[in-house]
Simulated scan of single mutants.
Amino acid sequence: MPTNSSCLTQHHWDIFCTVVDNYGDIGVTWRLAKQLVAEYNIPINLWVDDLLSFSHILPKLDINKAQQSFFGVNIFQWNNPLDIEFKSGEVVIEAFACELPSQVKGQIEQLHHHSDTHAPTWLNLEYLSAEDWVDGCHGLPSSQPNGVTKWFYFPGFSAKTGGLICERDLFNQRDEWQADPKHKLALFKQLGLQGINAQDTVISVFSYETEALTALCHLWQASPTPVHALIPKGRSLNSIQSLLPCAIEDLIPGQQFIIGSLTLHILPMTDQNGFDRLLWSCDFNIVRGEDSFLRAQWAAKPFIWHIYPQEDDYHLVKLQAFIQIYCDNLAPEIATTWSEVNLAFNQGNTNAVVMHWQHLLSVNLPLMQHAIKWPINALNDADLASRLVQFVNNS
């Protein structure tokens, strides 16, 4: 007897993403979607609730279009309730504990109880964390009230976790880029940034608000050599409004402001490939969230991670967990200096961040060497997409 075609799963994966904090969640899911298509030839339907924020990292996206395709990924406007027909694929991923639409959960349940079909694998892709407990929670099943099993997939730094997002050829591309200074100078010119010489210190800034950034800018003003801070319009600028001659909303990408030895450059928004190249081109990167945090590590440059503040300072627990594994093979004086800079920046401790930044300059070379070795160690033989595909095949 022929099977009811409406109950058959399609040969694609569905990923649902609720955009939080503008770029973080969608940044991760967009990278994963592109990689699954490019490297595993898996058709991906990406459902996103906020196309406007998404368009900041995918400038060609039409925010008024309900369905469109880029890099082989089918992008759908996720309205609630869904106003586009949904046909479940082989895998359904809810990114970062977003709530799946009732139509989707209903279809998963229907397929689960239909004897002639293979029900889709339902995954909750969690946030990245370096905490120890992730090892024990990755891959655990959760039985839902409707009898369906949902699996928890935790990215992480150990072999027992779901791994880290990293495209197959990324490190080769980075090494070729960094081998010749003409690449970074061409990028700066393309971004409309003027007056940057190859030997100048260039720092990218993509942080939340903190007085620690204000303190560092004052320190950079008195530097004996030129310092360029590259800052996009957004939350970082709220911390240095006092240094600007106009309101933040009046700033234009490409503008620059010279304050002593420091030149502030206003960056245009860029796509993800452009952001990667920006991180590769700077001497130091200050990043936030999850996607930028990981890309700063892959850039093989020293960085500060400004983690999203949480109640009872729980974000500092997450920061300390990462510091512990990042500094595992570092000499004590270098580990202490880098750790203290990160802690001071996250605590908004202006005096401490200035003092430890000055110490950081004296250990820059070994810190740089560590930053170059770290990506290979952190990848732990297999990236997140590879482990994810294997997990689905085994589930």
Rank of each mutant, 00 (worst) to 15 (best):
residue 1 M to T: 05
residue 4 N to Y: 15
residue 6 S to F: 12
residue 7 C to N: 14
residue 12 H to T: 06
residue 13 W to V: 06
residue 18 T to P: 00
residue 19 V to N: 09
residue 20 V to K: 13
residue 27 G to K: 05
residue 28 V to M: 08
residue 31 R to C: 03
residue 31 R to S: 04
residue 32 L to A: 07
residue 33 A to Q: 01
residue 36 L to D: 01
residue 40 Y to F: 13
residue 41 N to F: 05
residue 41 N to S: 11
residue 41 N to V: 03
residue 42 I to G: 01
residue 51 L to W: 02
residue 51 L to E: 01
residue 54 F to A: 05
residue 61 L to M: 08
residue 63 I to G: 04
residue 67 Q to R: 07
residue 70 F to E: 01
residue 77 Q to A: 13
residue 80 N to E: 01
residue 82 L to E: 05
residue 86 F to R: 04
residue 92 V to R: 10
residue 93 I to S: 10
residue 94 E to D: 13
residue 96 F to D: 03
residue 98 C to W: 12
residue 99 E to Q: 14
residue 100 L to P: 03
residue 100 L to M: 05
residue 105 K to Y: 11
residue 105 K to L: 15
residue 106 G to T: 07
residue 108 I to M: 11
residue 113 H to K: 06
residue 114 H to L: 11
residue 117 T to S: 14
residue 118 H to Q: 11
residue 121 T to E: 03
residue 127 Y to K: 03
residue 127 Y to Q: 00
residue 134 V to M: 02
residue 134 V to F: 05
residue 135 D to N: 12
residue 140 L to H: 00
residue 141 P to S: 05
residue 143 S to M: 01
residue 144 Q to M: 12
residue 145 P to W: 01
residue 147 G to L: 02
residue 150 K to P: 02
residue 151 W to Y: 12
residue 157 F to H: 09
residue 158 S to M: 07
residue 173 Q to R: 11
residue 174 R to H: 06
residue 174 R to V: 04
residue 176 E to S: 15
residue 179 A to D: 04
residue 181 P to Q: 08
residue 182 K to P: 02
residue 186 A to F: 14
residue 186 A to T: 04
residue 188 F to N: 02
residue 190 Q to T: 08
residue 192 G to A: 04
residue 192 G to S: 02
residue 194 Q to R: 10
residue 195 G to M: 09
residue 197 N to E: 08
residue 198 A to T: 07
residue 200 D to H: 15
residue 201 T to P: 03
residue 204 S to M: 02
residue 210 T to A: 15
residue 212 A to E: 02
residue 214 T to S: 14
residue 215 A to S: 12
residue 217 C to M: 14
residue 218 H to P: 00
residue 220 W to M: 09
residue 228 H to R: 02
residue 234 G to M: 08
residue 245 P to M: 07
residue 251 L to D: 00
residue 254 G to R: 08
residue 256 Q to M: 08
residue 257 F to V: 00
residue 257 F to C: 01
residue 261 S to D: 00
residue 263 T to H: 04
residue 265 H to S: 06
residue 266 I to H: 04
residue 267 L to C: 07
residue 269 M to W: 15
residue 270 T to W: 03
residue 277 R to V: 00
residue 277 R to M: 11
residue 279 L to M: 09
residue 280 W to K: 10
residue 284 F to M: 11
residue 285 N to K: 13
residue 285 N to M: 10
residue 286 I to K: 12
residue 287 V to S: 13
residue 290 E to G: 14
residue 290 E to K: 13
residue 291 D to K: 05
residue 294 L to N: 12
residue 295 R to T: 08
residue 295 R to L: 10
residue 296 A to V: 09
residue 300 A to C: 14
residue 306 H to A: 13
residue 307 I to N: 11
residue 308 Y to L: 03
residue 308 Y to F: 15
residue 312 D to W: 11
residue 312 D to Q: 14
residue 313 D to Q: 07
residue 314 Y to R: 06
residue 315 H to Y: 11
residue 320 Q to I: 01
residue 322 F to S: 04
residue 329 N to M: 06
residue 332 P to Y: 09
residue 332 P to C: 10
residue 334 I to F: 12
residue 336 T to W: 07
residue 342 N to P: 08
residue 345 F to L: 06
residue 346 N to I: 02
residue 347 Q to L: 14
residue 348 G to M: 03
residue 351 N to G: 11
residue 353 V to P: 08
residue 356 H to Y: 15
residue 356 H to C: 07
residue 358 Q to H: 05
residue 363 V to S: 10
residue 371 A to L: 03
residue 371 A to T: 00
residue 376 I to S: 10
residue 380 N to V: 01
residue 380 N to A: 07
residue 384 L to D: 00
residue 394 N to H: 15
residue 394 N to R: 15
